[in-house]
Design a protein around this nucleic acid. Structure first.
Lengths: 183, 183
DNA sequence: ATTTGCCTATCTACCAGAAGGTAGGTAATT
DNA sequence: AATTACCTACCTTCTGGTAGATAGGCAAAT
């Protein structure tokens, strides 16, 4: 892997572990065995790195969306939920939750790209739910967009919260979401 | 108000606005017109301040719990939800969500006190829901503790997320939670 | 075939400011 | 006399960031 993509990968991991204000260029350069200045060569400012990390996440999200594009809504939703499961397995939190928490410390560029990421997720889940409702795969009484917001907030905050409650709570929430959608 | 409680009040506000790693002693001292060293007089370390802020939140939570202790479950739940509404009105996020996001950068003392705060909230909401279920005020099919987790995660993450989606989303989520509990 | 020159990816060395924190002093209050 | 609530002055480490050097690779011009 190239140095540039290694920097993005490590920055992404640090945001999920410690938050955007919780890591420094030194944290990355020490792990890679390079100097701080080499990171500035690829990313002039920390915000430039932040934007690159968000765009990288957006790329992977688009890949995930395309991967299950022609599958049924149940499988699509499971694909969505599996993203959070793998974050939980690493004892991290989701990048959206991490950056949204620090929103007022981010500059306009990072905020704008974060907004695109959030909108993409929300639109994807809304479409999955709408589709599942039409096909009879899912059953719920509220607007698909609202249901999407409820499910996304459940997953996002359960990553943050269940590190402080019982270890099995995350899985309980995950299973309950699927169960409650069943017709 | 005493300087000490002003420091706690400002620290609390900064955590909700910028996160624990997003503010410094200078941010507080400048706002209060005192010197950094004066904050260290009351709180030797930043973690000491963090613990005091969490304990202060816990005090206010206990007050809120006692305030509606003999009211019906519907009013108790509205009291709980009103806490998030007033945070939203200030365009901030909840302190639990903020600190839980930065969990791995907090020391053991802050983490332990944060855990107490989370547990207190979860137990309170679980009790409200259990009570409402017994009395027929609420209707839901899952375990009260699980339902509490779902509602808390909805509120917590919607504060973070809805700053990036549509402005009315927060209120929609709030109203949906109440509506779905109706028998 | 060799020189010239530019591009890439790193380095060394440095900077100003902010971070959290400490030591010791002082003036007013109890 | 002791305590409280500040202050000045200072320290160390870390922060994001900059300037300029270097060494290798490629590629066109001589």
């Amino acid at each position: 892997m190239s140095t540039k993509s290694e920097i993005i990968r490590l920055g992404d991991a640090f945001i999920k572990e410690k938050g955007f204000n919780g890591f420094s260029f030194s944290d990355i350069s020490k792990k890679l065995g390079i100097k701080n200045a080499s990171i500035h060569y690829y990313f002039p400012t920390k915000s430039d790195l932040g934007v690159a990390i968000i765009n990288d996440e957006l790329d992977r999200l688009h890949n995930a969306i395309n991967e299950v594009n022609d599958k049924d809504p149940d499988e699509q939703l499971r694909k969505f939920l599996s993203i959070y499961i793998s974050i939980k397995d690493q004892n991290n939190i989701c990048i959206v939750g991490s950056l949204a928490s620090d929103l007022s410390t981010l500059d306009e560029y990072m905020a704008a790209h974060l907004k695109i990421l959030v909108t993409t997720i929300l639109n994807w889940v809304t479409a999955i739910l709408q589709n599942g409702l039409n096909k009879g795969t899912f059953k719920f009484e509220i607007a698909p967009r609202t249901k999407a917001l409820l499910i996304i907030t459940n997953m996002l905050a359960s990553l943050q919260l269940t590190r402080l409650t019982a270890p099995e709570d995350f899985e309980t929430i995950h299973n309950t979401i699927l169960k409650e959608l069943k017709p």
